[in-house]
């Protein structure tokens, strides 16, 4: 599977096996970006061209520039997401400018949630969210393949039960 797994993994012994997100999420986000900002650009260009004059319609280039910038940003953000299932805990690493790395021991998981909104479903994607007793934990893995999401959910639930520790 082609993934956006981290480019800066050092191959060291005992290092976790990082898994990146499948490209579907990037495709979906980029498509949404292009569709929405493209519509805004069209509407802006059309309205300004009609009511203010063709010169003003150049402002429609602004959303197009945002598309270009967002295209790159989404790619970098997508590439920064990765997770690793270790023997006793789950690692999630993300963020380009604000980097965040979360470790959740399996025994602390209260529930595992698989969610998939209408747009995500259309693109065949699902998110896995882990809840511990601490609300601040916020361990979400977005944009997984539904089969992979279900596998992860089942595995996490199983491991969580085996190592259950509660509060």
């Amino acid at each position: 599977m082609e993934t956006g797994s981290g480019q800066d993994t050092e191959p060291a012994a005992g290092e976790p096996v990082w898994i990146g997100l499948p490209p579907g999420l990037l495709r979906m986000r980029r498509l949404l970006l292009v569709v929405w900002l493209g519509l805004i650009a069209l509407a802006l260009g059309g309205l300004l061209g009609l009511f203010a004059g063709p010169g003003w319609a150049a402002f429609a280039l602004l959303p197009l520039a945002v598309i270009g910038w967002g295209w790159v940003m989404l790619g970098r953000n997508w590439a920064s997401w990765r997770y690793a299932e270790r023997a006793d805990d789950l690692l999630i690493s993300r963020g380009v400018l604000w980097r965040e790395e979360t470790v959740v021991p399996y025994g602390r998981m209260q529930l595992v949630e698989v969610t998939s909104g209408p747009v995500e479903r259309h693109f065949g994607l699902a998110s896995v969210q882990l809840h511990t007793a601490a609300a601040a934990t916020d361990a979400t893995i977005p944009g997984l393949d539904p089969a992979e999401a279900e596998r992860l959910r089942d595995r996490l639930t199983e491991l969580g039960e085996a190592r259950s520790a509660g509060l």
């Binding site: 604000w98 790395e101 602390r108 601040a136 934990t137 361990a139």
Partner: peptide
């Protein structure tokens, strides 16, 4: 401890610093 998080902003990365949150 329920989960451990490491957070690093851009300015902190410049100075090779990071925060560790324990939930």
């Amino acid at each position: 401890v329920q989960s451990v998080r490491l957070v690093q902003g851009p300015w902190q990365r410049l100075w090779r610093l990071a925060d560790v949150h324990v939930d």
